[in-house]
């Protein structure tokens, strides 16, 4: 899975570049985020602007990533497309994650904390 990373101050923006996060890529995605967290990244923005579809395994990987933070720091999601947003709503994951419309807002939100 191709993932772009940009560090803005204390905040790391992670941007999956594949169209889908699904059973075939979720494990790699989860491992990558786990590595980042273990490497000390505690403020992560997940930019989903390139993603068309996330299946239930992919959504599970995102939940696991939040859990892996162990309550220290935060993972904020930004720029989801409507198809992806509807899946967050379906699972009620939108109530667990802060979801913001733009990367700037997400970075600003995490920068405050």
């Amino acid at each position: 899975m191709r993932i772009d990373q940009i560090k803005t101050g204390a905040v790391l923006v992670v941007k999956p570049m594949d169209k889908r996060i699904d059973a075939s890529s979720a494990t790699a995605f989860k491992a990558k985020i786990a590595d980042l967290i273990q490497g000390g990244e505690k403020r992560i923005v997940l930019n989903l602007s390139e993603v068309d579809f996330i299946d239930s395994t992919g959504l599970g990987a995102i939940v696991s990533s939040l859990k892996a933070m162990g309550g220290e720091g935060d993972l904020v999601i930004c720029n989801p497309r409507e198809t992806v947003m509807s899946l967050f709503r379906l699972t009620r994951m939108n109530r667990v994650f802060q979801i913001l419309p733009s990367e700037e807002e997400a970075v600003a939100s995490l920068s405050k904390t």
């Binding site: 239930s56 599970g60 699972t91 009620r92 109530r95």
Partner: peptide
């Protein structure tokens, strides 16, 4: 998955479905 949301309220999440 029985969890809590950002307001600390009960938040059941429907996970691992097939479509």
């Amino acid at each position: 998955e029985h969890g809590i949301d950002r307001q600390g309220l009960y938040n059941p999440m429907w996970l691992d479905w097939q479509v």
